[in-house]
Amino acid sequence: MKLPASLHRLIEELAKLPTIGRKSAKRLAFHLATAPKADPNALAQALLAAAMELRPCTQCGGIASGELCPLCNDKSRLEGSILVVEEARNVFTVEESGIYKGQYHVLGGAISPMKGIGPSQLNLKSLEARIDQGGIEELILATNPTLEGEATAHYLTDLFQSKVARITRIARGMPTGGDLEYADPGTLTRAIEGRTRFNSA
């Protein structure tokens, strides 16, 4: 069956998005095609605004709508520590927890030679510049607990060891609320290997 050209284009564009398969792309497209005009209009406006406005924060690499992201702009945040993550969305995950009050830095990925990603593909220049400015007492490495995330953490440690007094790695392993029963052996091993001291020394 031949679809109207604009509907076809909409399906193809939607299907390019992550986690959206061809089936879901079709469902979304047909939904939008038959919805009251205001809905697709609002979505289109939102997309357009996002595409025009959003860009990487020049300081941390997170998502900003101007020069700096809201977090880098926030003068109330502590200045002495930087928490390093792989992706911009990881910043929001940590923020949701409310546990951390310092600065962030987004690498834009993790080292993976097989995928052709080396240190020069990561957002490191600006991190180096931030550290060279001084005043950073702790670097918290919160890259993913995958081999690539681990390799990236090792790389950053070697790179900044002489410049930052304290470099820490977030504990790997058990998700909270997770029952020991549901952890797979790999996760459990990592959790046990990465255990921290519980009684006072």
């Binding site: 080292i111 030679p113 080396g118 390799a151």
Partner: peptide
């Protein structure tokens, strides 16, 4: 991952692996 670096001669990136 390490073999990929060795093949392409990226000596500086081997350490973490």
């Amino acid at each position: 991952q390490k073999n990929q670096l060795l093949r392409t001669g990226k000596a500086k990136e081997v350490a973490p692996w």
